[in-house]
């Protein structure tokens, strides 16, 4: 049962969030490239630096943080509403009577799914961001494809990938635990369900930003 529920959650969280992550990443990548190309105009900095800046910004900050803030809205509110709804419709009580450890049965599959799928989504987000940066800048003639790719490959530090994965992993845990808590301890009524769902998103976002700062302090 745990295995099947974990698979269902992985599908919901992973596949279910793919489209939104794809779209956001493409546009964030494109905007980042266009903005930096604009900012660096008139300086003696080589143009290929835009690719380098886009890559590091994406890996270190944009992909993990922006993706997880969006996922806190999509996945987090969904988790809180689903568990909250189960609580209100006595599903949780039914499980308790069947002797199921509900806190474990409801939280563990979701936590595992978040811990595994969110880093995967963040990796995809970083890849699509760079594709977006290329599509947003090279065809418009800001710089050549070769210059952009040269920038992407310049001064690569694998530590940045580690940092991205650590952030994705931590943010995944944060948004899952906050949302599960909000859903599990929901009070009766649809107003309360809405509130708990909103609280899940707001608190997750705040904690993601705080932990982003802490991870940056520790890992840089």
């Amino acid at each position: 049962m745990y295995w099947r529920e974990t698979m269902r959650q992985m599908e919901d969280i992973g596949l279910g969030s793919f489209l939104i992550v794809f779209l956001i990443s493409i546009f964030i990548g494109a905007v980042t490239a266009v903005q930096f190309a604009y900012q660096l105009t008139g300086f003696t900095i080589p143009r290929y630096y835009v690719g380098y800046i886009v890559r590091d910004m994406t890996l270190i900050e944009m992909a993990p943080t922006i993706t997880c803030l969006v996922l806190a809205g999509k996945v987090g509110s969904n988790i809180a509403a689903e568990i909250g709804g189960m609580q209100q419709k006595e599903h949780v009580a039914a499980m308790e009577i069947m002797g199921v450890n509900t806190s474990s049965f409801l939280v563990l599959p979701r936590l595992l799914a978040c811990m595994l799928m969110i880093p995967v989504l963040v990796c995809m987000a970083s890849f699509f961001s760079m594709i977006g940066a290329y599509l947003g800048s090279v065809p418009t003639g800001m710089f050549t494809g070769d210059e952009f790719v040269r920038g992407l490959r310049a001064f690569f530090d694998s530590h940045h990938v580690v940092m991205m994965l650590v952030k994705a992993f931590v943010f995944g845990i944060v948004l899952c635990m906050v949302s599960c808590y909000q859903g599990y301890y929901v009070k009766t009524g649809s107003v309360e369900l809405g509130k708990s769902s909103t609280q899940a998103v707001v608190i997750s976002n705040i904690l993601i930003l705080v932990s982003d700062y802490l991870i940056a302090m520790v890992l840089t």
Binding site: K89, E90, H91, A93, A94, I97, M98, G99
Partner: peptide
């Protein structure tokens, strides 16, 4: 003892 108990909920659950 839970294995010896069955429950039908108001909203079926």
């Amino acid at each position: 003892i839970r294995m010896e108990v069955g429950m039908l909920f108001q909203g079926s659950a």
